[in-house]
C-alpha cells in the first residue's frame, strides 16, 4: 500500500454548480503533494471532503487502504486557508483544547506542546491570550496545533500566508522535516516558487476538473518542447545566424561582447540534438547548450490558458 490517500471519481455539487467533477487522485505515502489551481477551482472543496467537513455526492476516498471514515479524523491534520484561533482564550489552554478534540489525552498533549513550544522558541506564551500576540506569532501556534497529534496526513492550505520570510523559512524546514519523519503532506497553494521547492507530486485542478497530475519531474519532461538555449563564440561575423535561420526555427537571438558571442534559443523538431550539434561543429565554438525545462509556473499558466475557451 503505497498511497496514503486515493480519490476515485469524486464529484461534488452545490445546487447547480459542480464544484468537483470526477476527480481521481493518488497521493503517495511520505511525499509532498502539491494541489494546484486558480481560485475557485475546487481545491478547498476537495480538501474539505478529505477532512470529512463535507461529503462527496459520488465517488470514494480511500485513506491508508481503507474507505475514509470518522475515526480517520484523528490521523489527519489540517491547516485551513481561512484560519484563526479564539482571540480571548489563552494560548496553552486553547492548544490543549484543540489537541483533545483531535483525540489526544491532556497529559500527552501537554508534553508534546512543551516540546513544540521549545522547538519554535515560544516557551513563555502559555498564559498569554491570542489577541495579545502578533499575527506571525499566532500563525506559529496555529501550525503547532495542526501537527501536534502527529497525523499520518497533513494538509496545508496556503501555509505561508501570514508569515514573514524568516518564519516562512522556519515553517518550510519544519514541513520538510515532518516529511523526512514519514508524514505525507498535501500542499495547496498558488505560489509556484514554493511548489518547485517542496513538491514531488502535483495535481492541477481548474474549473472543477483535474487537468494533470503526476510526478513533478515527469510532468516537466512531458512539457519540454525541445527548446534549447545556445551560446556560440564567433571569430568573425560570418553570417552564421542567417544560415541557422534558414535551417532551424530560431525563436530569439542577440549578439553580445561586441559581436564576439551569439546567444539564441532554438526549437528543434525532436529531442534529437545530434543533427543540430553536427551542423554547428566546425562553424563556431559552442559555449553553452542547455535545454529549457518549463517551470511549474509556466506549466500552470499554459495548462490553464489552454483550457480557458472550453
Amino acid at each position: 500500500m503505497n498511497n496514503i490517500l486515493v480519490a476515485n471519481e469524486v464529484t461534488k455539487k452545490y445546487g447547480n454548480h459542480i464544484a468537483l467533477n470526477k476527480i481521481s487522485l493518488e497521493i503517495p505515502k511520505n511525499s509532498i503533494y502539491g494541489l494546484l489551481g486558480p481560485n475557485g477551482a475546487g481545491k478547498t472543496t476537495l480538501i474539505r471532503i478529505i477532512n470529512q467537513i463535507t461529503y462527496p455526492d459520488q465517488g470514494t476516498i480511500i485513506f491508508d487502504g481503507k474507505p475514509l471514515e470518522a475515526k480517520h479524523i484523528s490521523m489527519i491534520g489540517y491547516l485551513p486557508e481561512e484560519r484563526g484561533l479564539y482571540k480571548s482564550m489563552k494560548v496553552g489552554e486553547q492548544a490543549l483544547y484543540l489537541a483533545q478534540l483531535k483525540g489526544m489525552s491532556k497529559s500527552e498533549a501537554k508534553a508534546k506542546l512543551k516540546y513544540w513550544f521549545e522547538r519554535l522558541e515560544i516557551g513563555d506564551w502559555w498564559n498569554r491570550k491570542i489577541q495579545e500576540l502578533s499575527k506571525g506569532m499566532a500563525q506559529k501556534i496555529q501550525f503547532i496545533v495542526t501537527v501536534l497529534h502527529e497525523p499520518k496526513l497533513l494538509i496545508f492550505d496556503e501555509p505561508f500566508s501570514g508569515f514573514d520570510p524568516i518564519n516562512a523559512n522556519l515553517i518550510k524546514d519544519e514541513i520538510l522535516r515532518l516529511k523526512e519523519n514519514g508524514t505525507s503532506i498535501i500542499f495547496s497553494t498558488h505560489r509556484m516558487e514554493s511548489v518547485e521547492e517542496l513538491c514531488e507530486y502535483i495535481a492541477l485542478i481548474h474549473k472543477s476538473e483535474k487537468l494533470l497530475d503526476g510526478k513533478l519531474s515527469d510532468i516537466k519532461n512531458a512539457y519540454k518542447n525541445n527548446i534549447y538555449k545556445v551560446g556560440l563564440g564567433l571569430h568573425s561575423s560570418n553570417g552564421i545566424l542567417d544560415d541557422l535561420k534558414d535551417k532551424f526555427q530560431i525563436l530569439s537571438s542577440e549578439y553580445v561582447d561586441n559581436g564576439q558571442q551569439l546567444n539564441f534559443t532554438v526549437q528543434l523538431p525532436s529531442n534529437d540534438t545530434g543533427a543540430f550539434l553536427t551542423h554547428l561543429s566546425g562553424k563556431a565554438n559552442v559555449n553553452h547548450f542547455t535545454e529549457t525545462i518549463p517551470s511549474a509556473n509556466d506549466i500552470f499558466i499554459k495548462t490553464v490558458q489552454n483550457k480557458q475557451p472550453i
Binding site: N51, I73, Y78, P80, E82, R83, L101, V145
Partner: peptide, 10 residues
C-alpha cells in the same frame, strides 16, 4: 475569528 474550520475538521 476563522477558528470554525479548524474545529470542524476535528
Amino acid at each position: 475569528s476563522r477558528i470554525v474550520e479548524v474545529i470542524i475538521s476535528s
